[in-house]
Each structure stands twice: as C-alpha cells, then as structure tokens.
C-alpha cells in the first residue's frame, strides 16, 4: 500500500482525528447515552483503518506498531478481567465495588462505578484487535512463482 493522492491524505488527516475524538466520546459517555466500549472501540479502530487506506501501512504502523498493538490487546482484556475480579472483594465477581463506596449522582459522568472503566478496557481491546485484523489482512501480498505462492507482509517489522 503506497497511499492515495494528496487531497485524500489531507482530508484524512482532519477526519481521522475527528473520528478518533468521536470514538473516545462514545467510550467515555457510554454509560449515560448511546455507545459503550464495543461501539466506541470500533470507531476508534476505524480512524486507524482510514489512515491505513489513505497513507498506506508503512506510515500507520509508525503510529501504532504491531508489537505494541498485540500487547495492548492482551492488556485491555486483562484490565477488564482484573476489574471484574476486584469485585470479588466487594462480595461478588463483577460487583460494582466503586459504586458501593462512592455512589455519585445519577446522570453525571462519574456515577456508574466500574462501568466506564470497563468500557475503556473493552474499547482498548476492540480497537487494537480490529486494527490488527485489518492491518494483517490488508498488508499481506500474494506472489505467485510458478506453482509456489508466497505470502509477504508489506511492512518490515
């Protein structure tokens, strides 16, 4: 992938940031309004996907290296699990222990205890997973040499 024309690149530079912002909004306000970890995470991933499409894999992988993404993937899932396990001290697995200590006021951002934190963890996981899936599938190139078909990843890692 070598990227597209200057017009596309310039517009992408603006829109990708906006898309990223929108995704972050959905994640952080997911417990009050539409959105949540999964939907927000998908949109966060979309901002990376649009960058891959416009700039090509090489440029994007600088923004989010593959090894880092693979780590973040596991870390997001682990964070979610740890949040749930900490609930065991509050009585039950998944129990909302923060809300028990500090209830907060309904319809405020800080009111739902572990739910926003869980949303962030899920968003992290979903975002990097989807990014990795797209990137790996998109950057593979098949070359045919006689009978033999080779796979080659576009970027060098």
């Amino acid at each position: 992938m070598t990227g597209m024309t200057v017009i596309v690149k310039t517009i992408t530079r603006w829109t990708a940031a906006l898309i990223f912002l929108y995704g972050a909004y959905l994640v952080l306000y997911g417990h009050l309004s539409v959105g949540g970890g999964f939907a927000g995470g998908i949109i966060l991933a979309c901002s990376y996907v649009i960058m891959i499409l416009a700039y090509g894999g090489k440029e994007t992988i600088h923004a989010l290296p593959k090894a880092v993404a693979a780590r973040l993937d596991s870390i997001g899932a682990l964070a979610f699990l740890i949040l749930a396990s900490l609930g065991m001290f509050g009585g039950f697995f998944f129990s909302n222990w923060i809300r028990d200590i500090w209830p907060g006021q309904q319809f405020r951002v800080f009111s739902a205890g572990i739910i926003p934190l869980a949303n962030i963890a899920i968003a992290l996981k979903v975002c990097v997973s989807l990014f990795l899936i797209f990137f790996i599938l998109a950057s593979l190139r098949m070359t045919r040499k006689g009978d033999k078909i080779e796979f080659r990843s576009e970027e060098v890692d």
Partner: peptide
C-alpha cells in the same frame, strides 16, 4: 446482538485467514 456480532467478527477473521492460507498451499 452486540455479543453475537463480536463473535461473528472473530469467526470471520479466522475463516478468512484460514482461507488465505489454504490458497497459499493449494493455489
């Protein structure tokens, strides 16, 4: 539905990956 979609994404990605590998081996 959201849960089912997440699962479908995983299955889809895995099946595409296996299909690509199959293409590599069998042409």
């Amino acid at each position: 539905v959201l849960t089912a979609i997440v699962i479908n994404v995983a299955v889809l990605a895995l099946s595409i990956a296996i299909a690509m590998r199959l293409y590599q081996k069998y042409g």
